[in-house]
Amino acid sequence: MFEQGSVLEIGSGPVGLGRFRKVPFVGCDVSFPFEPSWPMTPMVASATELPLKDNEFDVVVASDVLEHVPPHLRKMVISEALRVARKLVIFGFPSGRPAWESDRELLNVYVKSKRTPPGWLSEHMDAPFPESEIFEGLEGWEMRQQGNESISFHSWLMQKEMSGIFNRASSLGMQIAPSLVEMLLRRADRGPFYRQIFTLRSTKND
């Protein structure tokens, strides 16, 4: 999907899509903990006010970002992503009360084991997860929704990632055989889903 055309990733962090596809892209975030490397070109900016022209990128991606945005700013992030995209926008984020409750249980596991929870998990508790209704009323875009990653698998994986040995093994697997890891992860795509993916295609030129 990303082999041709320009790509912007919102909330990329220092690696982003470069972990899965060695195709040049622009990664946007409010800050980078370390200097990003190829294939990313980094851009420091807020997702609510992108310093970009209208229709500047063919594809815009925002993965596991919207749930970290305060609810009153989420539609602004969506609007900015649609503004700078020519053809395609992809949002993926944990969605629904059951997914939120699974993360609350995961947080309790960290607390009971007296371990510091990761920042993203603590932030997940700040507000309800976004729902599909957030995309209602969009004009000029055709939307497709699909579930991603079962809640039970997500919970199992996140608890496994509390182990340094598991993290090193999974990181090695991603480096050696990313396609195999991706295929195995796809097998976890069954309901009830932890995450929802929304693909929006522009209909302006139809």
Rank of each mutant, 00 (worst) to 15 (best):
M1E: 14
E3N: 13
Q4L: 14
S6E: 11
G11W: 02
P14D: 03
V15H: 12
V15Y: 11
G16A: 08
G18F: 03
K22E: 12
F25C: 09
D29G: 06
D29V: 07
V30C: 13
W38R: 15
W38A: 15
M40Q: 10
T41F: 10
T41M: 14
V44M: 14
A45M: 05
A47D: 05
V59P: 00
V65A: 01
L66P: 02
V69L: 01
L73C: 05
V77I: 04
E80H: 06
A85P: 00
R86C: 03
L88R: 11
V89Y: 02
I90K: 03
F91W: 02
F91V: 00
F93Q: 07
G96K: 02
A99H: 00
V109I: 13
V111S: 13
R115Y: 05
R115D: 04
G119Q: 09
W120E: 00
W120N: 03
M125P: 04
P128F: 06
P128D: 06
E133M: 10
E136Q: 13
L138S: 03
L138W: 06
L138C: 03
E139Q: 15
W141T: 08
M143K: 15
L157Y: 09
K160D: 06
R168F: 15
A169F: 15
A169M: 14
G173W: 06
P178K: 05
L180F: 13
D189Y: 05
F193R: 08
Y194M: 07
Q196F: 14
I197W: 07
R201H: 07
K204S: 09
K204T: 01
D206V: 00
